[in-house]
Design a protein around this nucleic acid. Sequence first.
DNA 1: CTTCATGCAAAAAATTTGCATTTTG
DNA 2: CAAAATGCAAATTTTTTGCATGAAG
Lengths: 133, 133
Amino acid sequence: MEYLINRLKEKSLKVTPQRVAIAQTIQKSGHVDIDEIYSIIVKSFPTISLATLYKNINSFLEKNFIVEVPVPNHKTKYELVQDSHAHFICTRCGSIKDISLDENRLLSSVHKDKGLGKFERYSFSLYGNCCSE
Amino acid sequence: MEYLINRLKEKSLKVTPQRVAIAQTIQKSGHVDIDEIYSIIVKSFPTISLATLYKNINSFLEKNFIVEVPVPNHKTKYELVQDSHAHFICTRCGSIKDISLDENRLLSSVHKDKGLGKFERYSFSLYGNCCSE
DNA sequence: CTTCATGCAAAAAATTTGCATTTTG
DNA sequence: CAAAATGCAAATTTTTTGCATGAAG
C-alpha cells in the first residue's frame, strides 16, 4: 500500500482514499473491469460513485499508471503498468493469464523496414478458450 | 467483390447487399470503426440502419470473418481476417498501420512453460504517436 | 417454404458532464 | 489557498432488442 501511494505520487496523481482503494483493487485482482472494481470497492467504501471510478480510470490511463487490456466479448479490463509480459485471454470466460516473454526476441520479430515509427509500448495477446466448450 | 462473396459463403453468412457493402468498406479501408463504416455506406445505401450494422459486425465476428482491433482513446476498429501481421497504432489519431512479421520468431518469444493453453489467434500491437504532438 | 436479415423505434447499457462541496498538496 | 477530486443527478453516447416485413438458400 505504501508502494501504491508512492506510485501515485510518482505519476503526480493526488492521493485520495478512493484512488488508493482503486489501485489496490486492480493490484490485488491483477486484471479487472470497471464493474468488478466497483462491486469490490463499494463494500468497503459505500459512498464511492461510478462517476468517480470512471474519472479515475481515465486519469490513471492518461498518467500511465494503468493500461487497458481489451477482452473480446467482455468489458475492457485494467492492470497496473508492469514489466512486459504477454496475455493469454480466454474469449469465453474473459479470464486473463500473464505469460512471461523474451522481449528482445518479441521485438525482433517485426520487420522494421519501412520507417516504423517509434513506439512507447506494445501489447501481445494470445486468444483461446480455457473453459469447457 | 466476387472474392468477398465467396468468403461470406465460406463462413456460412448469407449474402445480402448490406453485408457485401459492409465487407467491401472494411476491405477498402483496411481498418474502420462502426461509425466510419456507417457514414461511408449510407452514401451509396441510404436505407441501411445502424442496428443492421451492429448485428452484422457481431455476426462477422462470431464467424471469424473479421476481427476487432481495439484502439486506445478511439472506437474499436475492424479488419478482415488476414495473414498474420502486427499493428502500429497511433494513440493520438487512432490510425493503424500493418506491419509484417516473422510469426515463428514472434511465437517463440513467449515462455510456454506452465501449460499455456492452446490459442486460436493472437494480436501484437505497437503503440506510439504518428502525429505532431 | 424455412430460416435468417433488415430496419424501425424503443430500451438498455456504458460513459461523460456540470456543479456544489470537500479534500489535497 | 489554489487546484483538483468527489458524488450526485442528468445528459450523452453506444449498443442491443423486439417485432413486422422482406429476402436468401
